[in-house]
Amino acid sequence: MRCEFYEKYELGEIGESEFNAHSPNCPECRKLLAQDTQLLALAKNFEQPIASPLLWAKIENSLRAEQQRNRRNWRFNWPEQKWTLWRIAAVLLLGIGLGSYLIFKPEPGESRLLAGAALEQVEKRERAYAEAITELERTALPQMAKLDVELMLLYRDRLETIEAQIARCKEALAENPSNAHIRRYLLAALQDKKETLRELLQLAG
């Protein structure tokens, strides 16, 4: 009957100590062990094949060819490259946007918003107008009674209209004090009121 100890030992079903205890008394297992030991010794000493001196050159050439093929196929390889393309597109869009802004951006003088210094200057002029108007009103308004009724009503209506304009401008400027257009309207209205009062004074005088 065939001994199965060696097979069990080789397949890890029994341990080394168990096999060592068995093998001295089993010629079959001793023979198999000796044969396998020689087999492994022979295999371990196989001659290492020597690579042809051109093998690396051949491999390098094939790697180079593969790299070149990859570069050529790059644009066709959409799934792999799509993120790169998205990034390029984003950078391009950003560049176009920034370029357009720099090219078409309004000059400082054209700005619809007044810068700090300009605003201060405009407010100064408005205050000067307001002071002049207050002064004129103090003198001119009592003189209105000297005008005939029709002229008086005409000037009163005109002054009310101008004042309504001034009030609307001030209301808008309370929300947006730097708006150059409204400031311009306000200055024009103030000047109009000043001229009207001066006219009134001349007529009454």
Binding site: K58, I59, S62
Partner: peptide, 8 residues
């Protein structure tokens, strides 16, 4: 050798 080249 062909196999090594293909492996690389």
């Amino acid at each position: 050798e062909d196999a090594v080249q293909t492996a690389f």
